[in-house]
Every structure is written in structure tokens, then in C-alpha cells.
Simulated scan of single mutants.
Amino acid sequence: MFAPASGQAVFDRDQGERQLALEYLAEAWNVAEEDGVQSAALAHASLFAALATFVKMHGDEATADLMELLPDRIRSGEYNLERVLQ
């Protein structure tokens, strides 16, 4: 899904763990939708949980700094699942 950066061995390990985590989240998301939870509610809850975890791990300022990078990344299509990678 993401292009490798320097430090390939660390990237491979981290990428594998992130992929596994994404699979767990996708499974939980699908179960919740089957139970009638709306996608928007799941998205809001997921963002809250992710941001709260980042704040707990890295603090308010570091999390805010990270979030400042999101608008450009979103606009460039980095989070568009329908985007075609070349």
C-alpha cells in the first residue's frame, strides 16, 4: 500500500504489523456495520480512538503537529482507496 522508505528491514516489519492491524480493524468494522452501526459513526469513533492513542503516546503538541500534515496528504489522494498507484 505504501512505498518503502530507507531502513527496509524495519519498514517490512512495521508494514506487516500495520497490515495485520488494518485487517483486524476491517473485520471489526464489517461486524459493526452488519450490526447496523453507520459508517460515519464508525469513522468518527475510529478517529477519536486513534487521536486519543496518539495523544497518550506522544502528547498533545506532537499529535497536533502530525495532524497539521493531514490536509495536504488528503488532498494529494493518499487516503483515497480508489486511487490508482503507478
Rank of each mutant, 00 (worst) to 15 (best):
A28H: 06
D12I: 10
L66G: 12
L42M: 09
A5F: 00
R18G: 05
E82K: 03
I74R: 05
E68W: 00
L69F: 11
F11K: 01
L81D: 06
V55I: 12
E33A: 14
F11C: 06
S6K: 07
H58G: 04
F2Y: 12
G77T: 09
R13L: 10
E78S: 00
H58F: 08
M57I: 01
E61W: 12
E17R: 14
L25P: 02
A43G: 02
G16A: 05
E82H: 03
F2S: 14
R83L: 04
A64C: 08
Q38L: 15
S46Y: 00
F48L: 11
F11N: 05
L20T: 08
L51W: 00
L51V: 11
K56C: 03
S39M: 06
F2T: 08
T53W: 11
G36F: 11
P4N: 03
Y79P: 01
A32E: 00
F54N: 14
V31A: 10
R75A: 03
E27P: 04
A3S: 00
N80Y: 10
L85S: 05
E33F: 06
A49K: 14
H58C: 12
E17W: 01
Q8C: 11
A43S: 07
E34D: 11
S76D: 15
S46M: 13
H44T: 07
M57W: 00
E82V: 02
S6Q: 14
A3Q: 08
G7M: 02
A45L: 15
V84S: 12
A62F: 08
E33S: 15
D60Y: 12
H44N: 11
E78Y: 11
A64D: 15
E27S: 13
E68N: 13
L25Q: 09
V84A: 13
L66D: 11
A62H: 00
S46Q: 08
A21H: 10
Y24F: 12
D65G: 12
A45V: 13
